[in-house]
Amino acid sequence: MRMDSSDRVALTDLAARYAQAVDRRNTTALAALFTDDVAFVLPPALNGTDAPTEIRGNTVVSSSVVDAVSHLHSTRHIVEQQILDLDSPTTAHGEAYCSAHHIYPRGEGHRDNRIEIRYQDSFEKVDGTWLFSRRELVVDFAEDVPVILLGQ
C-alpha cells in the first residue's frame, strides 16, 4: 500500500516530537505521542537484564522514559533516516535511526554516552492523528567520550 506524503510527514514529525519531548523531559507531550495501550520495549543493553523489558500504557511509558534520563545533565536525540511503510489506512510500521547523546558529569568535566539506536516502530492513526502503538529500541553500539559544555 502506498503512503501519501501527508502521512509520511506526520510520521516523520512524530519521531522528531518524541526526541524533543524526551530531551525536554516533558512527560505530558511524550504521553500524547502514544496510543493509550502502547508497548515500549527496552533491550537488555539498556535495562540491565538478560531479556528485553516491555512497558505498557502511555502514561507509564512517558514517565519511565523521562525518569530514565532525569539524572543526566542533558540529552540530545538526533533522528536520522526513517523508513516507513503503510500497512492499512490507519496502521503503519517503520524503522528510525537515532544518535542518542547522554551528557553526565564526571570528575571536573562532562562526558557523553552516545548510543546508536534503531527504533522498530508500529503506528496507529487515531482520530486522524498518527501515534506510536509500539516502539522497540535496538542498540547497535555505544561510546563514551569527554565533552566540553559551551554556553554554561
Rank of each mutant, 00 (worst) to 15 (best):
D4F: 11
D7L: 04
V9H: 08
L11I: 15
D13N: 14
Y18L: 14
A19C: 14
Q20T: 12
A21R: 00
R24N: 05
A32H: 04
L33Q: 02
L33Y: 02
L33C: 10
T35G: 07
A39S: 13
V41L: 07
A45I: 07
N47K: 07
A51W: 03
T53K: 06
G57F: 01
N58S: 13
V60C: 07
S64R: 04
V65A: 11
V66R: 01
A68R: 10
H71C: 09
L72Q: 06
L72E: 00
H73N: 12
I78M: 12
Q81D: 11
D87M: 11
T90K: 06
T90F: 04
H93S: 14
H93T: 13
G94C: 10
S99K: 09
A100S: 06
H102A: 07
I103L: 14
P105R: 01
G107T: 04
E108C: 12
R111H: 07
N113Y: 08
I115H: 00
E116M: 12
Y119K: 10
Q120F: 13
Q120Y: 10
D127P: 03
G128I: 01
G128Q: 01
L131V: 13
S133H: 00
D140Q: 08
F141S: 13
A142S: 14
D144E: 03
V145W: 07
P146V: 04
V147L: 09
L150D: 10
